[in-house]
């Protein structure tokens, strides 16, 4: 079954980047506005999903050669490890340190250990969602 999907492919190429940007934006703005690790991760995952649906798995895999199971594992590791780091400085488990830093471009920015933790969450979500869909679709096809 060959369907003419030129429009879909062209639009996808553009839209995926918009969605990806939106996902990252969501992830970062989660500190003060709606967003955060879960929704950011889910949006990123759905962008990837769109790619997989438009092109076939092999093509996308050439571009994004990740094993998403490992990404999920990495996410959990990141979250747990960042939680354990404060223990090295004799703080309690999961103490989320924060501080203000003067950064170029961004100006005075508040950075927090939460960001690492949330990155772990986002990576886990991306990894798990893509893994689930990929395994099923590989099996189905």
């Amino acid at each position: 079954m060959k369907i003419n999907d030129v429009i879909l492919r062209t639009v996808t190429k553009i839209i995926v980047f918009i969605i990806l940007t939106f996902g990252v934006e969501l992830f970062i703005s989660g500190h003060n506005d709606p967003g955060g690790g879960f929704s950011g991760g889910l949006v990123l995952a759905s962008a990837l999903l769109l790619l997989y649906m438009t092109y076939d798995i092999e093509t996308v895999h050439k571009g994004i050669p990740f094993d998403f199971k490992k990404i999920a594992g990495l996410g959990v590791f990141l979250a747990v490890a960042s939680s354990a780091v404060p223990m090295l400085f004799s703080n309690q488990f999961l103490t989320q340190e924060k501080g203000d830093f003067a950064l170029p471009v961004f100006g005075l920015t508040e950075l927090s250990m939460v960001l690492v933790f949330e990155a772990g969450v986002a990576l886990t979500v991306v990894g798990v969602v893509v893994t689930i869909l990929l395994t099923i679709s590989e099996d189905v096809s």
Binding site: G30, H31, N32, D33, P34, G35, G36, G37, F38, Q96, K98, E110, S112, V114, F117, E118, V121
Partner: peptide
Amino acid sequence: LTGGGNIVNAILGD
């Protein structure tokens, strides 16, 4: 307490 303005995410992350 946490520096985050989004209370829901502050609960989740901190």
